[in-house]
């Protein structure tokens, strides 16, 4: 198995921005698509508004749950203060999806920002859109379904 067969996604932001929910959703989509998938995160002190990050890796067979240095394929950054941090972790051809990838003013509900970022990411990944929507509907609170679907399609149409 070569490391290149693994897709590495890192999400960085602040506690409360939905970082952990975002990696859960990415992982769930990959899981249902039949990939081996691992996700790593750290909770606790970091939850209280501090910086937080979480890794998802998927492919035919994943070993370490944590992404090695400089091998991030897709870096999602929710907090402008973490853009530089993420840039240093990307592969040469890695894709940075920064907080300005989504126009927050056009979100039906600002709480769906993380889902909009997933919309941007989804255009880069080999999973059907319908797959993502099904996971969003099943895994997120029912009262936020419409807001999340709007956010996801806003993200998909954005230039990531």
């Amino acid at each position: 198995m070569t490391a290149a067969a693994i897709t590495n996604i890192k999400v960085a932001g602040l506690g409360g921005q939905g970082v952990l929910t975002a990696t859960d959703l990415i992982g769930e989509v990959a899981f249902r698509a039949g990939r081996d998938v691992k996700k790593a995160e750290v909770h606790g002190m970091s939850q209280r508004g501090g910086s937080i990050e979480s890794d998802v890796r998927f492919g035919p067979a994943v070993l370490s749950p944590m992404i090695p240095e400089g091998t991030v394929d897709y870096g999602l950054v929710f907090d402008p203060g973490r853009v530089e941090y993420m840039k240093k972790r990307l592969r040469d051809e890695g894709v940075l999806i920064g907080p300005d990838a989504v126009d927050v003013g056009r979100l039906a509900d600002r709480r769906s920002f993380n889902v909009a970022m997933l919309g941007v990411l989804s255009t880069h990944l080999p999973f059907e859109c319908e797959f993502w929507l099904r996971v969003l509907r099943e895994r997120l609170p029912s009262r936020l379904v419409e807001a999340n679907e709007q956010a996801f399609s806003l993200g998909r149409s954005a230039k990531g």
């Binding site: 506690g15 209280r48 501090g50 910086s51 240095e69 907090d79 203060g81 941090y85």
Partner: peptide, 27 residues
């Protein structure tokens, strides 16, 4: 992690300083 394990196997006795920065937690 993978990188630290690689350094241990390679016999390195030092490692680059951990990156600080980011926002600390707060009340």
């Amino acid at each position: 992690n993978v990188d630290r394990v690689r350094r241990i196997i390679d016999g390195e006795t030092q490692e680059p300083p951990a990156e600080t920065g980011g926002k600390p937690p707060q009340l």
